[in-house]
């Protein structure tokens, strides 16, 4: 039981990372990773929607007819996104403004629909909660690792605190769209390189 919990929670980190390995949900990752604070906000928003919709669908899985499942999934996700929009507007208006259109676009994030289709619609509630948390963790690690690099190089700050003093000339390109593609490309390269090395080591054992 314990190993199963651990496996559900950690598989999204590297081996099945939704962003770096499966390359899903790239739009929000690249657009929002301009600053660490936005990335954190996006991760929390994503976790909220993923976990709640996975739980709901897992509870209702026996009553959802097979032929109508995709529209039902989308409506359930969209309802949670609408609730989230209300919460953000009421309590975090500045974050809501910074994330902008990418909050409603969580509805069409392929990661969530993919997990629901392949996991939550078949498995019990507790497993679905863990799966939702694990996948959100993977998403959060990906978006944060990109945001940290972009904010440090492109703005010289982290979470708004200046790192290098006033003499530092930030490379503006990393804040702009080309920087996002560049950073994710290099990070995927590093991950591929490391995992290839690890599998080669295992094979030679």
């Amino acid at each position: 039981m314990k190993t199963k919990i651990k496996q559900l929670l950690t598989k999204g980190l590297l081996k099945e990372n939704p962003v770096f390995v499966l390359m899903l949900g790239l739009c929000s990752v690249l657009a929002v990773s301009v600053s660490v604070i936005n990335a954190l906000g996006m991760t929390l928003a994503f976790t909220f929607v993923t976990v709640l919709s996975e739980v709901t669908i897992s509870v209702l899985r026996k009553w959802i007819p097979k032929s109508l499942r995709i529209p039902i999934f989308i409506v359930i996700i969209a309802s949670f996104v609408t609730i989230l929009q209300f919460l953000l507007q009421a309590y975090f208006p500045s974050l809501n403004k910074a994330l902008g259109i990418f909050i409603p676009l969580i509805v069409v994030n392929c990661i969530i629909i993919g997990r629901i289709e392949s996991f939550a619609s078949k498995k019990p509630v507790f497993d679905s909660i863990l799966d939702g948390l694990g996948i959100s963790l993977g998403y959060g690690i990906a978006i944060l690792s990109i945001a940290i690099v972009r904010e440090i190089l492109g703005n010289g700050t982290i979470l708004g605190y200046s790192l290098f003093g006033t003499s530092f000339e930030p490379a503006l390109m990393f804040i702009l769209p080309p920087g996002a593609f560049l950073v994710i490309g290099i990070e995927i390269g590093i991950i591929n390189h490391v995992s290839k090395k690890a599998s080669r080591k295992e094979a030679s054992k």
């Binding site: 769209p177 080309p178 920087g179 593609f181 490309g185 290099i186 995927i188 591929n192």
Partner: peptide, 21 residues
């Protein structure tokens, strides 16, 4: 070898994005 597969595609996208800028 380091850029084989997905990374080179993202790099290419980055350069096109610079052109679009």
């Amino acid at each position: 070898a380091f850029f084989k597969g997905a990374p080179i595609v993202f790099l290419a996208a980055s350069f096109i994005a610079i052109a679009f800028m």
